[in-house]
């Protein structure tokens, strides 16, 4: 009973504090504090409900139990992290995004190719590409190479479509100016069109970070050596070791948010001139 009261209390206190904070001037600290407070409140309610109603650990482990498991099994988590994120997702992400940008620059030189490939690219970007996973696992074997291949296929089209669109962003006036400077097409590309395309490219890169992790993890459901986050999740679910599953999910969430945040940070440095970035500072 005490734990249920704790959950209700946490809810009321958290909500009241957030309402109070919302009335303050939206300074930077307040902006940061409100979502943090919301998250802490949710975790406190979760803890209270799980303990108060005696929810079985097979259904939903309490946050404290997950934290304990996380601390106790860092070795396993690190091994899985290296296998899935560093070897699988990161390799695939770099290859996929790099080749997509290069392809986009190549396509951009031909109007015919662009008009032909864009509808196809848009179409493919909307397809359930994760489904390619079993085929690629069959082609590239069980180890991380097949995971990287799945990631390459998944990130390629969103980045391609965004980059091609971005390369069109420079206006005719700006291009004419480059021509009056007698700039070669390579110079125009480097000094004008690629910088102008950066906001679009980063949009694609941000979408691709999440897709890369999803691809690497889901591909492991179709066959994997005995390590990796997707493998551990599906095996631990079978063993009803849900605390370990949640620990893996915490790792995935941290990696996902860190990767997204990292790309957003680079975007801020690279596209400092863009209105959406200027408005914030």
């Amino acid at each position: 009973m005490g734990w249920i009261l704790f959950a209700v209390g946490a809810w009321i206190v958290g909500w009241a504090l957030n309402v109070r904070l919302a009335r303050l001037a939206p300074s930077r600290a307040v902006r940061l504090a409100m979502p943090v407070l919301f998250g802490v409140t949710i975790i406190a309610i979760w803890e209270g409900v799980v303990r108060g109603f005696d929810v079985s650990a097979v259904l939903l482990p309490a946050p404290s139990v997950i934290a304990t498991t996380f601390a106790a099994s860092t070795a396993i988590l690190w091994e899985d992290f290296v296998q899935t994120v560093i070897k699988g997702a990161l390799t695939g992400y770099i290859i996929g995004c790099g080749s997509a940008v290069l392809t986009a620059i190549a396509i951009d030189r031909s109007d015919f190719l662009r008009r032909g490939l864009m509808p196809v690219g848009n179409f493919v970007a909307a397809l359930p590409i994760v489904g390619m996973a079993p085929i690629l696992v069959m082609w590239f074997g069980f180890d991380w190479q097949s995971k990287a291949a799945v990631v390459v296929v998944m990130v390629f089209f969103p980045v391609l479509v965004n980059t091609v669109e971005g390369l069109q962003a420079a206006s005719a006036m700006q291009r004419d100016l480059m021509r009056t400077y007698a700039a070669s097409s390579a110079t125009t590309l480097l000094k004008l069109r690629l910088p102008m395309a950066m906001p679009f490219i980063f949009n694609g890169l941000k979408i691709a970070t999440t897709l890369a992790l999803i691809g690497a993890i889901v591909a492991e459901f179709f066959g994997s050596p005995i390590r990796g986050m997707g493998f551990r999740i599906s095996v631990s679910v079978g063993q009803l070791a849900l605390d370990l599953v949640w620990a893996e999910i915490v790792v995935a969430a941290l990696v996902g948010s860190a990767a997204y945040g990292g790309v957003a940070l680079i975007e801020r440095v690279v596209t400092f001139w863009h209105p959406s970035q200027r408005a914030r500072s």
Binding site: W15, N18, V19, L21, A22, P26, V30, R31, M34, P35, L37, F38, G39, V58, L59, L60, V130, T209, T210, L213, I214, I217, V218, F221, M229, G230, I233, S234, V237, L240, L242, V245, E248, I249, A252, A253, G256, S257, A259, Y260
Partner: peptide, 30 residues
């Protein structure tokens, strides 16, 4: 609602950086 805007919206965005499909087996089993 300003409270929701400032406290929930960041989590909505964060929720998508989590590879949710990894949760799929667990959700189904649970």
């Amino acid at each position: 609602n300003t409270v929701m805007d400032r406290s929930v919206m960041p989590w909505v965005i964060t929720s998508q950086t989590i590879p949710i499909l990894a949760l799929a087996p667990m959700i189904i089993v649970v």
